[in-house]
Design a protein around this nucleic acid. Sequence first.
DNA 1: ATGAAAGCGCTAACAC
DNA 2: GTGTTAGCGCTTTCAT
Lengths: 324, 324
Amino acid sequence: VPRPGRSIRISGRRRPTILDVARRAGVSKSLVSLVVRGDDRVSDERRQAVLDAISDLNYRPNAMARGLVQRRTRIIGVMISNFRNPFFADVVAGIQHQAAERGYKALFSTGDRQHEAIFRFGGTAPLVVLNRQTTDVASDSITNDNHAGARMAVEHCAALGHRRIAHIRGAPGAAARERLEGYEETMRRLGLERHLLSVEGGYNEAGGSRGASELLEHRPLPTAVFAANDLCAIGALNAFEEAAMRIPDDVSIVGYDNTSLAALRHVSLTSIHQPGEEMGRVAVDLMFERIHEGRTEPRHDVITPSLVVRSTTAPPPSVDVCEG
Amino acid sequence: VPRPGRSIRISGRRRPTILDVARRAGVSKSLVSLVVRGDDRVSDERRQAVLDAISDLNYRPNAMARGLVQRRTRIIGVMISNFRNPFFADVVAGIQHQAAERGYKALFSTGDRQHEAIFRFGGTAPLVVLNRQTTDVASDSITNDNHAGARMAVEHCAALGHRRIAHIRGAPGAAARERLEGYEETMRRLGLERHLLSVEGGYNEAGGSRGASELLEHRPLPTAVFAANDLCAIGALNAFEEAAMRIPDDVSIVGYDNTSLAALRHVSLTSIHQPGEEMGRVAVDLMFERIHEGRTEPRHDVITPSLVVRSTTAPPPSVDVCEG
DNA sequence: ATGAAAGCGCTAACAC
DNA sequence: GTGTTAGCGCTTTCAT
């Protein structure tokens, strides 16, 4: 860790303080403070003098000093586990928008092993956890209903006439478990328990590819595949195409998350939409309930996903429709 | 804007300060400060007492108070124009990694109309601008060499035997202009000036689609297309496929940025790699030169991109090779 | 090895 | 309307 000089001066002189402004305008610090904060009980004359001094000196209030005395920064800190996941781009947009709406700023951070630290953080400031299992009583959470999403995927395929609907599982974790459970429950409820077939996969392209390869060795072949997420679905799609199977003529594929990937016309993947923006907005709302409305009991909101039908799902090959 | 209570208390009591710790440990504030900062001139006995008090009270130093007195936060602020662009995910990773390496944290922010504010910011703290034209003498910049990237794209196609190499332009701006210039210069240098053909497009899928549609009306058809970026290339790819043209048999396509999209096997797009991670790392390095090494004269680094060949480029249809 | 005290830049309570 | 003053929580001389 480098040891810098005591203060960082770019232009050679220190940043002007409220006192510099006050002196130049010939008024007191308090008056400058009032003007800066837009208080109207200042004479026009003095206000103008202060404004001039501010622009002359290029004065900008020190956010740390202000935060220190106000004990409030109007900043929401956000820890993003993976900026590469386009789902989080939506969440970021939702948080950013809703925070701005309420006069707050959002600051985003990322880091590998800092996640446990976050949980210990609960109790110090309002904490909302998104799409992670939380039992921490000091935090709120907002998750998507993976059971419901899986159900929608399976029901969509079944409604098209599919019976041999397989599932490529996500990497071990709560989400993968719930999606698997949703898949299995729905298959049973629809009387398709003898067609239950799930294989290992993962939340990435390679995992989907591997899962599809495994499915390709199964006889009879499934006619529809519910993949762990969009990337997994795209990996599966590729593997099927390399095996000379046509999508959706020979096999239908459903993804999960409905990321921007799925919406690409070249991909045009039917997917379960997880409303990232909405989840981000709700997360901010949950914070505000604690900050401004005095809520103290935890809330664990569950958002219902929705089905977006595109071009990777269609009725099964005709021989399969009648088969039973 | 809501008006909260004066301080935010989650657990009902205020956050412990260094004074609370000092009292509980029976020492002075200074000693607590020394322990917290890992200074070794503290007796083991007292150190342990302080450590115990800290963990009993769950004390965490107030970053604002510390920043105020030290005039230094060890935080790098990063403004990202668009989190949806996967290129920036790479930049974020690079910045995050290099900052952490040097004992700093990176905080990311996004916002629509805040960009001008950023430029006025120069002079207050070290400012590095990434992939934007800057003449601001108070800031450093790091850009990728768009001329070189375009040259690589065209040369790659030409080496495969293409002559009718067209270009779909990006949205108006410095990058689009430079890529266009690079395209035109290289075509001329290769003696292909009579095959110069560029059409309007944009940095998104729809723009690429539109550009490709326009190219499809041109006779003779181009056999290779250099697109403004990956998304644009994918839009073009889709439009060509819908016009029953095969990629790369009938037409080759080169993208720009080499985002994760291009690497999807289902897409497998030949692209110009812009090293986002490296650019992020270098950006941090540039800041540190100003912070810790006293550099004051501006630096404007240019990174050379590279060609990544995948499956969307191949020699032109045989009839075209001989044509001249 | 430890403590007292000044002060970072700002806001807000209070006095006038 | 305006100025004075007392901190916010911390680091950092400077004594001891």
